[in-house]
Simulated assay, not measured.
Amino acid sequence: MTLYSFAKRMFRLQFRLMGWKVQGADNMPNEGPVILAINHVSMWDPVVAACSIPRQASFMAKEELFSIPILGTIFSKLGAFPVKRGQGDMNAIRQSLTILKGGGVLGLFPEGTRSKTGEIQKGMPGMVLLMEKSQASVVPVKVSGTRHMFTKGWGKITVVIGKPLTAQMLKAPEGVENRREWIAERIMQAMIELPEAK
C-alpha cells in the first residue's frame, strides 16, 4: 500500500466519523486527464477533496509549504508539488502538463489563495491554459465546512462534485477581449452554482 492510499484511508475514516457528505461523485471521469477546480477556504480543502474522489490526485501547493521540515517531504511523497505564486512558474506549469498528459488528475485552487470570507472569488486564467494545452476536462468542486473543521465542522463537511466541463463547452464568443479570463469566469460560476450537499 502506498503512502497516498494509506493516508486517504485514514482520513476517510476520520471524515466519516465527522459526518462528511459527498455529492456528485459519479460526475468524476473514471479515466483521462482531469483538472479539479476547487474553492479554497481552509488548509484541509485538498485533503477533503482528494478523499472525495476515487482516483489519485496531484495538488499544486504554494512553495512556502515545502520548506517546512518533515511536512514538505510528506507533501512531496503524496504527489504534491510547489508553485511560486504571483508569477508565471514554468516549472509548475510543466509538471502540471506532465501529470495531465499522462492521463492523471490535477488538483487546483483557481482563486490562488484561501478566501477570507468563505465566498468564492475570481478564478485565475492559468487553469484555462492547462486545460487547453492538455485537453483535460475541468471538474468544478465546492468544499464547505472545512474552515473550522475540528471545532465547528462536525456534521458540516460537504463536497459537491460538478459535471465535467470541456474546452469545447467553454468556447468564448467572438469579440471577447480576454478569452482565458472569460472561460475562467465560466468555470468559477459553475462552481458557485453547484447545489448544497443534502
Rank of each mutant, 00 (worst) to 15 (best):
M1N: 05
T2E: 13
F6E: 09
A7H: 09
Q14W: 07
F15K: 07
R16V: 13
V22W: 05
A25G: 09
N27E: 01
M28P: 02
P29L: 05
N30Y: 00
N30F: 00
P33A: 13
N39I: 02
H40G: 06
S42N: 10
M43K: 00
W44G: 03
P46I: 05
V47W: 04
V47H: 04
R55K: 14
Q56M: 10
A57G: 10
A57R: 12
F59K: 08
F59W: 14
M60Q: 13
M60V: 15
K62R: 15
E64T: 03
E64H: 00
F66E: 02
S67C: 05
P69I: 06
P69Q: 10
I70F: 14
I70P: 07
I70E: 01
L71G: 03
G72W: 01
I74A: 14
I74W: 14
I74N: 08
L78S: 04
L78N: 04
V83M: 12
V83N: 09
K84V: 13
R85N: 04
G88P: 04
G88R: 13
D89E: 11
D89N: 10
M90I: 09
A92R: 08
A92G: 08
Q95L: 10
L97E: 13
G102D: 14
G107L: 10
G107Q: 12
L108W: 02
F109V: 02
F109G: 08
P110M: 15
G112S: 02
R114K: 11
R114F: 13
E119F: 00
I120D: 09
Q121S: 02
K122H: 01
K122N: 01
K122C: 00
G123F: 15
L129C: 01
L129V: 09
M131G: 05
V139Y: 07
V139L: 11
P140Y: 12
P140Q: 13
V141N: 06
V141F: 07
K142Q: 12
K142A: 13
S144A: 14
G145N: 12
G145C: 13
R147M: 02
H148D: 14
T151E: 07
K152F: 05
I157C: 04
I157F: 00
V159Q: 10
V160A: 10
I161E: 09
T166M: 11
T166W: 12
A167P: 05
Q168C: 09
L170G: 01
P173S: 06
G175N: 10
R179E: 15
R179Q: 14
E181D: 13
W182A: 12
A184W: 05
M188N: 08
Q189N: 13
L194N: 09
E196F: 08
A197E: 09
